[in-house]
Amino acid sequence: MTRRITRTALLFSLCIILSVVESAFLTLPTLPGVKLGLSNLPVMYSLYTVNFPLALSLCLARSLFAFITRGFSACLLSLAGGCLSVLLMQLLLKTRSSIALVSVTGGISHNVGQLAAVSLLWSTPSVFSLSPVLIISGTVFGILNAVLLRVTIPYLKKIGGGK
């Protein structure tokens, strides 16, 4: 029981810290929204080794953190992107796809969710012109994240991170 609480707390703090870390990286000129996607790692980990509700609550925590630090619109974007991402990843998990595919889907759907939120918030469908850049970066960083996850899961399982 204590192990579960500790693990949940660790995952929550990891998620938030990673989202801070990835915001600290330079925003590329002319490419808004391209991010490393590191904050998806704890979410994916909890999808694989724990359960879906924990992954969803990680997304909610991340959005709450965005609300506290960056404001209302950032929170909405994070919610939209995160929830869509987690839902699609969970669906893909059921079909036993490769971890790379799950990660890429998570990244792309996160970006698509954010774009959809922006277009609804300000009634401007033209934001989707950014989608090619985001699809490519989502794919690249999705694969990177999958590799990272593959590398770290064995070590985390050894420390007793599983069920």
Binding site: P32, R70, S73, A74, V118, W122, T124, S126, V127, S129
Partner: peptide, 12 residues
């Protein structure tokens, strides 16, 4: 079709 946005200030 190109756009830029400032999210915190809600400018598009």
């Amino acid at each position: 079709g190109e756009w830029a946005a400032c999210l915190p200030n809600e400018v598009f």
